[in-house]
Design a protein around this nucleic acid. Structure first.
Lengths: 335, 335
DNA sequence: CCAGTTCATGCAATCGATTGCGCAAAGGCG
DNA sequence: CGCCTTTGCGCAATCGATTGCATGAACTGG
């Protein structure tokens, strides 16, 4: 403890070897003899020393960090407070940490189209995970054409250039709507903002399910804010102005579904007896809400694994395809 | 566009000056002549060049990044999905970005007591913002005694060593409970997990308010999970086993309050007529829920400003005191 | 017109780790 | 026992920017 060990040179002196050997020992290269390596590692441990990642990064031309960015294209000022995003980010943090990478979080309000290019130019991370394409698909495609290490969570649309990982929103929408129809709903309202590409696909799926039903079922589209916080007012004002309340609600997210249930029960309508409500995402909340929410499950941890694996493949220079996972209908008590 | 500009040397050659001058121009030092500086900056812009932050950081011995840490001491496996945290992190991201710092997010499951020291030793960031002390006050204090650049969001307790920024939880609890008493509640239930220091202070405030009322008011403590997602079951099972339902609920967070309202209305109890419910945090959700939630407001953006300012003072080596903000009672329709 | 400042810029060392190349010692083999 | 391969380690260049010090030009004033 006499001397302070700040660099591998200090440690090298202590161990009586060259800094090169220290570097190799700490990096676990097999060229150093096992005993030397062990001795050096023990010494490092004792002195609470770990080599400067900055210097390493400079030399190896890697950053050791992944940028996680959330664009908020559809609504200015929307906060990323949806538990779905939080859950995704939490899982990403675990996965990236495990691989020895930092998670650098950026929140972007895409005022100009070059926000992504600027982040790429800044060159502070090894790659990007973009959460939610929102309405920024063109920007992502533009960047993807010359920048490989980027993967987006979200929808896959035909012809897209960038790599995406997500669930099949169209199928999810169809599953949800078909379920409502099977439960006897004849007037179904879609709650969500179709400006976000993911949600518009869910809406299309809903339309398909209605069409498959072969008539007798009506689909209404109720535009709401994407921020679940704000959807309550939208729903309430819709109910105020409609003559006949729909008997089924397909909410584009669990948060919206929960809000809808609150609004409905405040008006004396019982879920699921009078009205049926299905959500989307299968957040932890959905399982324990009252009533427990029927919903479409997106496999977050599976998705995160794919996101990270594809990103690292791309960092190594290998191209990857997009991944479309299957959503799953989870039937609980709200339908 | 002929040559590729990767380093200040490339740019220096293009501009016909030395790399030193380029460095100074880009850093905005006043010693370079205005025209040279302008010319160099324009050139950099044209080539989408920005100097390597890694190399800069190595030379200047700074990291350009702040670690944001969320410890999860009270409950294993709890996910940081509470919108409160998300909102806080979003605000932090904005504030730090504005100051030119990256936000490195780490999620920590404090299995051993040295988790914080390890992060400090890793030396990848200039400072830490710890969100929510949870039950890790001792760990924070231990680190704070020799490590300055760290600020925690959360409670202030007498004698703590580390710097905290937060609202007065004791006062908040008192305000909330006093409000319920004024509204006529005589049996008040506290919903929350007092293992988290912040929540136990709110509970103490509640006790104080009850004491001030001078008898006739009863305070019940209903232990719930801290994860709001899981509190529904706790509340439901409590209601199943109690003979007389309380007429007032003080929920330790808005999410728990909303859950409570759902559970209550599912049992045919009307809020606020039969039972009054007050929350905590004043999330965006609270304003638009049904009914709109009476709650205790924590000023997040003000808090974030204090967090960041104190942290940067500490990074510069100046000690700072803790900040205790006043919470505010927001009366809406749930009480 | 000259000595003393001021101003803008260049030189070169430095931050701390990584790694290609070379060398010496040790081991293998006939 | 002598030659060739393997093994373990050290030398020194390198990653890209910053910055104290030096230098020469321009400027000031007498």
């Amino acid at each position: 403890m006499a001397v302070k060990v700040r660099t591998i040179y200090d440690l090298a002196e202590l161990a009586g070897v060259s800094p090169a050997t220290v570097s190799r020992a700490l990096a676990g290269k097999q060229v150093v003899s096992a005993k030397t390596a062990e001795r050096i590692r023990k010494l490092a441990e004792e002195h609470g020393f770990s080599p400067s990642s900055i210097a390493r990064n400079l030399r190896t031309r890697r950053r050791g960090a992944i940028g996680v960015v959330i664009p908020l294209g559809h609504e200015r000022g929307q906060h990323i407070s949806d538990p779905f995003f939080m859950t995704l980010i939490g899982a990403l943090a675990d996965e990236l940490t495990e691989r020895g990478f930092d998670l650098v979080l950026s929140r972007v309000i895409p005022d100009r189209d070059n926000w992504l290019q600027k982040m790429i130019d800044a060159d502070r991370v090894d790659g990007f995970i973009v959460i939610g394409q929102s309405d920024q698909s063109k920007v992502l495609d533009a960047a993807a054409s010359h920048f490989l290490p980027m993967v987006a969570w979200g929808a896959f649309v035909q012809g897209q250039v960038h790599c995406s990982v997500g669930t099949d929103n169209y199928l999810g929408g169809r599953l949800a709507t078909r379920h409502l129809i099977e439960r006897g709903c004849r007037t179904i309202a879609f709650l969500g903002n179709p400006r976000a590409i993911e949600l518009s696909l869910r809406l299309e799926g809903a339309r398909a399910a209605v069409a498959e039903a072969g008539g007798g079922v009506e689909l209404l589209e109720i535009p709401t804010h994407l921020a679940a916080e704000l959807s309550g007012e939208d729903i309430a004002s819709y109910l105020d102005h409609v003559e006949k309340v729909p008997d089924g609600f397909f909410a584009a997210s669990d948060m919206i579904a929960l809000t809808a249930i609150q609004v409905l029960s405040a008006r004396g309508l019982s879920v699921p007896d009078d009205v049926k409500v299905i959500g989307y995402d299968d957040l932890a909340l959905a399982r324990t809400s009252v009533p427990p929410l029927t919903t479409i499950r997106q496999d977050i941890s599976g998705g995160v694994t794919h996101l990270v694996e594809n990103l690292f493949k791309r960092i190594e220079g290998k191209a990857t395809g997009s991944v479309v996972l299957n959503p799953e209908l989870i039937v609980r008590s709200s339908t």
